[in-house]
Amino acid sequence: MHELTQLNPIVWAILAVEVAFWLTLASGLAMRYLFRMPRASRTILLCVPLLDLVLIALTVVDLAGGTEPDSVHALAVVYLGFTIGFGHATIAWADRWFAYRFADGPRPPKPPRSGTAYVRRMWAEWRRVVVAWAIALPGLLGLAMVAGVALPTDWDAVLSDPLLRMAVGLTWIAAIWFAAGPVYAMVFRWEGEREDASTAGSEPA
């Protein structure tokens, strides 16, 4: 318990934002489907991006106050990138299931596992990864500037800094995701149009 209370404040901020995200999402969908208040639902769901801005503001203030940058600060930026990249798809997925459970909506179809629809799904997923990377990379470099990180002169200097190291790692993740996602799908799982048409479009583009 003592170790938990000694966590970096940014860790607590990330955990709080994650909890707030799901609570806000659930509240917005409840307003839409249970209480039939679509305007209130839209207002609540529009607050979701504000949570990320609060997290980044706290991270910048922490670094500007003289805190040494570490992997937790880098994680906050990566969290922002993946929230923006995958947030819309996550909300759409939750919306479909909420409508099915509480508003007599159609049951969401199962994701395709092969064929053209599967390939499209993998490309859509990787595009979200690219969005996350495109948001997180300049964010990490910006935090490095706020923290006064000197411009690295060699590869060892890059790897010794947690913010720059995370930027490199995130680039590798995007590349590996590309190979394991759309490339793998096109080479090994593209079986023409044999998949059941009912599975097509199960994931938002």
Rank of each mutant, 00 (worst) to 15 (best):
L140K: 01
F188C: 11
F178I: 06
A30Y: 14
E195L: 12
P152N: 04
E193C: 00
M122R: 12
R39F: 09
V146G: 00
A20Y: 12
L51V: 06
L15N: 10
A26P: 04
P204C: 06
G181C: 10
L45A: 09
L137Y: 00
C47P: 01
W93A: 14
V119E: 03
R120C: 04
A200F: 01
S71P: 01
P106Q: 10
L75I: 03
R36D: 11
A94G: 08
D95M: 07
A132E: 00
G139F: 04
L75P: 02
S198Y: 03
E193G: 01
L45W: 14
L53Y: 09
F102G: 03
W123K: 05
F188Q: 10
W190N: 15
W155M: 00
M166T: 11
A26M: 06
G105W: 13
T171S: 07
P49E: 02
V158M: 02
D95L: 07
R121C: 07
A175E: 03
L163I: 05
M186N: 12
V131W: 03
V61D: 09
F82R: 07
L170T: 06
A200D: 09
F82G: 08
G192R: 06
D161E: 11
W97K: 07
M1T: 13
A99M: 05
D196A: 12
G105H: 11
V72Q: 05
D156K: 03
T24V: 12
A124W: 12
A157H: 04
C47I: 12
M186C: 13
A64I: 05
L137Q: 00
G192Q: 09
W12I: 10
R113W: 09
F98D: 09
A136K: 02
L46Q: 10
L51Q: 09
P112A: 14
I44H: 01
A40L: 15
A76V: 07
R127E: 01
K110D: 15
G115V: 06
M37W: 08
